[in-house]
């Protein structure tokens, strides 16, 4: 038997909203430690890795590890039927899971709705993501990163990210001209969510597709801060951390010029 009850149902709605554009079908791997998902987009340029710890659900029950093959589009449609304040419970019979039951209860428990999502067999290979000691790790307000991606997209579909000890610089060059945004580390003690920090092993400069980065910023509502990890000739890691776990996006770099 699998059962996972999340009092903050809105979190699940936002999580699904943050992956729906990138991935169409995915396996939710359920185990006693929690729920995880790893999936690449169709072009194998970007990968999303989601992890929700069992402790974040109450109750959480998963008698044996199994996978729920989900069409994220369909799941999103059903999630739209949940209120932002609803408690959401996921249930499945882990021996012959051919459907996922979703229960939405409003706070006063007067309104309970139940949906069954048909599951699919998804044969998806998992990639092993090497532990990387990144050249640069940048923490910044997630809204700031979202704005930079949106603003620089008016100039070009690519952005070069340069990180040095005391600056992260985003540069875009296109037909209409160029644009760049430079951020310096700040440490606002009273408002940690607005701080910008740079941990630097060595300077790094990489180019990425802004289309994908903008897509990743759908994770902005999940966390006040976003972490960017860069290493020369390695995919970028963009992470939004939550109490219950994290959502990580990896993006392969653009090379040559």
């Amino acid at each position: 038997m699998f059962e996972a009850r999340l009092t903050q149902g809105a979190l699940l709605k936002r999580l699904l909203d943050s992956v729906k554009e990138l991935v169409t079908d995915a396996n939710f791997d359920c185990s006693e430690t929690g729920i995880s998902l790893q999936a690449m987009d169709n072009s194998h340029v970007a990968l999303v890795s989601l992890s929700l710890r069992a402790e974040g659900f109450n109750p959480y029950r998963c008698d044996r590890g199994f996978s729920l093959g989900v069409n994220l589009n369909s799941l999103n449609k059903i999630m739209k039927c949940a209120g932002n304040e609803d408690v959401i419970t996921l249930k499945a019979d882990d021996s012959s899971a051919d459907s996922l039951c979703l229960l939405f209860e409003n706070s006063s428990n007067e309104r309970v709705s139940e949906y069954e999502l048909k599951l699919m067999d998804i044969d998806q290979e998992h990639l092993s993501i090497p532990e990387t000691d990144y050249d640069a790790t940048v923490m910044m307000p997630s809204a700031e990163f979202q704005r930079i991606c949106r603003d620089l997209m008016v100039v070009s579909e690519s952005v070069t990210i340069d990180v040095s000890k005391d600056e992260i610089k985003f540069t875009a060059e296109g037909e209409l001209g160029t644009g760049n945004v430079k951020l310096k580390p700040t440490s606002t003690i009273d408002k940690p969510e607005e701080s910008i920090t740079i941990e630097l092993g060595q300077t790094v400069s990489l180019q990425f597709s802004l289309k994908y980065l903008s897509n990743f910023t759908r994770g902005t509502p999940l966390s006040d801060q976003v972490m960017l990890c860069l290493s020369d000739n390695m995919p970028l890691l963009v992470e939004y951390k939550m109490d219950i776990g994290y959502i990580r996006y990896y993006l392969a770099p653009k090379v040559g010029d």
């Binding site: 990639l127 390695m234 392969a252 090379v255 010029d257």
Partner: peptide, 14 residues
């Protein structure tokens, strides 16, 4: 013109 790489060049299947 810069070229987009693929994740398969960096992450190997398990």
């Amino acid at each position: 013109m810069s070229k987009q790489t693929k994740l398969g060049a960096f992450f190997k299947p398990k």
